[in-house]
């Protein structure tokens, strides 16, 4: 059984990549299973998906806690304590990461899928690229089956013909760039977990309630950002427009009435940039 866990952000194609890997393996005659993490999180928020590949029937369900392979779509997730993408990765496990500089060192495969996707497809959706690179690194599927899986799954999610063709070119390129590491099929089951005893607690503990209301800034949704708004204070007139329109209350007014962006939580919607009447907000890398 080969267990693959994919980490990305909502909108990056993490789920689709899992589907592609799973279908490519199936086309090679393996048994496979893929499923997404189910959560309420939205575009830009950390998400995950899971693939199991086996020569026999897959007798596991749910999330994968000890993967053989981690596929990382977004470099920024690597340092996220909440996500902890490498958690449980087995010894000799493989990491396939979407980042440069490209190359393979030991069991770490780096491929700059985002740059390649922007060049070949025109947008930063790396599902086909990361799936193809992963399939190749694991040695689970020949290129023709990978491309067939890419085509099927991208059509399934409604991609237009021309975009499918561009993604096929991207997938083929990424497949060719990665060496086949040929990860060994491991028979060992998922790690066992210790159990805790649960006791009855006083009412305020045992009722689902929050007394620290307004504590969600601790969630730090700033990591969702794909662009960073930056205020040019030499132009800013403190008109408050950005403050009023920020959906997330991530812009505060300081003692002088100047808007201050809370980058820990700004999701990068860029409404402030669009609405700023004097164009004092610029767009920078996240």
């Amino acid at each position: 059984m080969l267990r693959v866990r994919l980490h990305g952000r909502g909108g990056q194609g993490t789920k689709t990549a899992g589907s592609i890997i799973s279908l490519a393996a199936t086309l090679e005659g393996y048994h496979a299973q893929d499923s997404p993490m189910y959560g309420p999180e939205r575009r830009g928020a950390p998400v995950a998906s899971f693939v199991r590949i086996s020569r026999d029937q897959v007798n596991e369900r749910g999330y994968i806690t000890s993967p053989d392979v981690v596929v990382l779509f977004d470099r920024s997730l690597a340092s996220s304590k909440a996500v902890d993408p490498l958690a449980g990765l087995r010894k000799a496990g493989v990491l396939v990461a979407n980042e440069g500089p490209e190359g393979t060192e030991g069991s770490v495969v780096r491929i700059d899928a985002s740059s390649r996707a922007r060049r070949l497809v025109g947008r930063d959706n790396v599902s086909a690229a990361m799936a193809a690179a992963t399939c190749r690194a694991l040695g689970i599927s020949r290129v023709e089956n990978v491309l067939s899986a890419v085509e099927t799954e991208l059509r399934e999610v409604g991609l237009a013909d021309q975009d499918v063709q561009k993604n096929l070119a991207l997938a083929e390129e990424c497949y060719s760039l990665v060496p086949a590491l040929g990860v060994r099929d491991q028979d060992s089951p998922e790690a066992e977990h210790a159990l805790a005893e649960v006791r009855y607690a006083p009412h305020y503990v045992s009722t689902s309630l929050i007394m620290s209301t307004g504590n969600s800034p601790q969630k730090k949704t700033g990591g969702w950002r794909t662009s960073r708004p930056v205020i040019d204070y030499s132009k800013c007139t403190n008109c408050m427009v950005c403050f009023v329109y920020c959906p997330d209350s991530a812009i505060h007014l300081d003692a002088d009435g100047a808007p201050r962006i809370d980058y820990d939580n700004c999701k990068g919607c860029m409404i402030c940039l669009t609405e700023c009447p004097i164009r004092a907000v610029s767009e920078e890398a996240p």
Partner: peptide, 25 residues
């Protein structure tokens, strides 16, 4: 005017809602 918008926030950052949610405003 918009300048009269109260500064104090009751809806705070860090919600799980999508970036650019109009209803949240």
């Amino acid at each position: 005017t918009m300048k009269d918008t109260p500064a104090r926030e009751y809806l705070v950052s860090g919600s799980p809602l999508c970036p650019g949610c109009g209803g949240e405003i």
